[in-house]
Amino acid sequence: HSHMSHTQVIELERKFSHQKYLSAPERAHLAKNLKLTETQVKIWFQNRRYKTKRKQLSSEL
Rank of each mutant, 00 (worst) to 15 (best):
K35V: 05
T39I: 11
T39H: 12
R14Q: 05
N47R: 14
I43P: 00
S2G: 14
R27N: 05
S23W: 02
N33S: 14
Q56V: 08
L12Y: 01
S5Q: 04
L12T: 03
S23H: 02
M4D: 03
A31E: 01
K35N: 14
H3C: 15
H3N: 11
E26Y: 02
Q40N: 02
V9D: 03
T7Y: 14
Y50D: 11
S5W: 04
L12S: 00
Q56F: 08
E38H: 04
K32E: 09
K20A: 08
T7Q: 13
E60N: 10
V9R: 10
K55L: 12
R49Y: 06
E13K: 06
A24D: 06
W44Q: 01
R48D: 01
K35L: 10
V9C: 13
T39V: 08
R27C: 07
H3M: 10
V41N: 01
A28C: 11
Q19G: 05
L22D: 00
H18S: 11
S17V: 08
N33G: 06
E11T: 05
L12E: 02
W44I: 02
T52A: 15
M4A: 03
K15G: 01
K42S: 06
H6T: 07
A24L: 09
L57M: 11
L30Y: 00
L61A: 14
Q46N: 07
K42M: 11
A28L: 09
K15D: 00
A24R: 12
A28K: 10
I10V: 07
T52H: 14
K55N: 11
Y21R: 05
S5P: 02
E26K: 03
H3E: 10
L12D: 02
K42L: 11
N47V: 08
S2V: 10
T7M: 12
E13F: 07
R54F: 08
Q40S: 03
T37C: 03
L12Q: 01
V9Y: 10
A31N: 00
T7R: 09
L30G: 00
A31F: 02
S2C: 15
K42G: 05
S2A: 11
R49Q: 04
S23N: 06
K42N: 06
L57K: 13
H29R: 15
E11S: 06
R54E: 11
Q46L: 06
L22Q: 01
F16K: 01
E26D: 06
I10G: 05
Q19D: 06
A24E: 08
K53L: 09
I43E: 11
K15M: 13
T39E: 14
A28R: 11
M4Q: 02
M4E: 01
S58V: 15
Y50Q: 14
Q19I: 06
L30E: 00
H1E: 09
Q56M: 08
K20L: 03
Y50L: 14
L61N: 12
T52G: 10
F45M: 02
K53Q: 09
E38T: 09
S2D: 08
R27M: 14
K55Q: 12
R14L: 08
S58M: 09
E26M: 05
K35T: 05
K53S: 09
K15Y: 14
E26H: 03
M4V: 05
P25G: 15
Q40L: 05
F45T: 00
Q8V: 11
E38V: 10
H1D: 10
Y50G: 11
K55Y: 05
T7C: 13
T7E: 14
K15R: 15
L61Y: 06
K35I: 03
R48Q: 14
V9H: 14
Y50H: 11
H3T: 07
V9G: 02
R27A: 09
V41A: 01
S23M: 01
E13T: 04
V41W: 02
H29F: 10
R14F: 14
K20Y: 05
L36G: 00
H3R: 10
L61K: 12
L22C: 07
K32M: 11
S17A: 14
H6R: 12
F16A: 03
E13Y: 05
P25L: 14
T39M: 13
T7P: 04
R49M: 04
S59M: 07
S17D: 08
F45W: 13
E26C: 08
K15Q: 11
K32L: 13
H6Y: 10
R27S: 04
E38Y: 05
T37H: 04
N33E: 14
R27L: 14
H29W: 10
R14M: 08
